[in-house]
Design a protein around this nucleic acid. Structure first.
Lengths: 210, 210
DNA sequence: ACCATACGATACCGAACGGTACCGCTCGGA
DNA sequence: TCCGAGCGGTACCGTTCGGTATCGTATGGT
């Protein structure tokens, strides 16, 4: 009843399963997994608890399915960025950073769903944890591939740096400690991609990018 | 009763308020704020709920007090690192990174208390949120000061990069996507401190990098 | 026309939660 | 000697939670 105001049934008349997942997405992300009750999801989806339990065995299963969808969205971003810059792995990495940077304002005070969910799910056997860990592993693998293709020296180290910076930017945006985090993020990744190339000439000072 | 096993009253006979805070520290960090009930804290502290509410007005106040203590620990790490390397701001920054890197294995699968608590406290008016935000702001301010003193070009950008990397390393360790995160973290910070210096005759000589 | 399925609604269950009331004990300062 | 504050123990309150049972209805494929 608290957060029901001001939403003119945008969800409208999708099948209930989609409405439930949309409502879960909004609520889980904005308020956290444990704060949101099944009843609240049902109201937001304009349906009932009964309907939710017809489609999902348990609340945990719904959480896992939500994260599976989020992970698929990130995968799609990877795909898109790869398709937009074929044979230009450096540009792919920059496109990825741009994707995250552009997403920062949108999820400004609520951060990354994976990071947040991880904090709320200490139980490593929770079904959603497996979704998160597999997603992160896949993402890292792809990023290492891009770094290798970009000809960076020590691609695993570069991928680690980019991963750290991407996640750190999201966390710092969430707690408001760094302003213009998106711009800063882009400049950092440009530095990693541009300055540490194996090609000749740019040895010593990694000048250029700043 | 579930988690009481295997702990031979290490807390022993501190005054109850300290026992409560110790128990809260362990439980909040390992299981999350919302998963831990006041009753569980009481059992772990070998006291009762009544005693807890004699010392803290509410559970939220206890959470805030816990985070205040954690923040003070981080502040102390800043102080120590500053005192160990007076007039050597570059070394101070590296010492800070070392402090975080060494802490990674200890909190391996449960991450940073601030990041986790942030995820569990979407309400920005929660007393603990203020503790977190003030701590992060202080930390950023000090880091910018170190970067300025170290003569880095664009110290705010460097501080942002270091902040991102520190937080990202903790998150990545938590979800297990990056191995040897501590080593990688140190090498990255060495790069930021060593390579982007404004003056040429760098004393610390982080030359051999890669 | 038929029937299985999905649906919305409501009422309910047991458990756990944050928080309170009340008890009797101990111990240290005046 | 007394007395009050801090303590541990227990029972309790109202609420919310995840999950279930049950009912009547709408609907769409055959």
């Amino acid at each position: 009843m608290a957060t029901t105001a001001g939403r003119p049934s945008r969800i409208a008349k999708l099948p209930p399963r989609e409405r439930i997942l949309d409502a879960a997405e909004e609520l889980f992300h904005s308020e956290g997994i444990r704060r949101v009750g099944v009843q609240a999801i049902a109201e937001r989806a304009e349906t009932t608890k009964t309907a939710i339990y017809r489609h999902f065995d348990t609340k945990d299963a719904l959480v896992a399915e939500w994260l599976r969808i989020v992970a698929a969205d990130y995968q799609a971003a990877f795909d898109r960025v790869e398709a937009e810059h074929p044979d230009a792995p450096g540009e792919q990495i920059l496109g990825l950073a741009r994707f995250i940077a552009e997403g920062l304002p949108r999820l400004s005070h609520r951060g990354c769903p994976f990071i947040n969910s991880l904090a709320e799910l200490p139980d490593r056997s929770h079904p959603a944890r497996q979704v998160i860990e597999e997603h992160k592993a896949r993402q890292t693998r792809r990023l290492v591939g891009m770094c290798t293709a970009a000809g960076l020296t020590d691609p695993e180290q570069a991928a680690a740096e980019i991963t750290f910076v991407l996640e750190g930017a999201q966390v710092s945006t969430q707690n408001g400690s760094i302003d213009r985090a998106g711009d800063r993020l882009l400049r950092i990744v440009e530095g990693v991609v541009g300055a540490r190339r194996a090609d000749p000439g740019a040895s010593g000072a990694p000048a250029g990018r700043r």
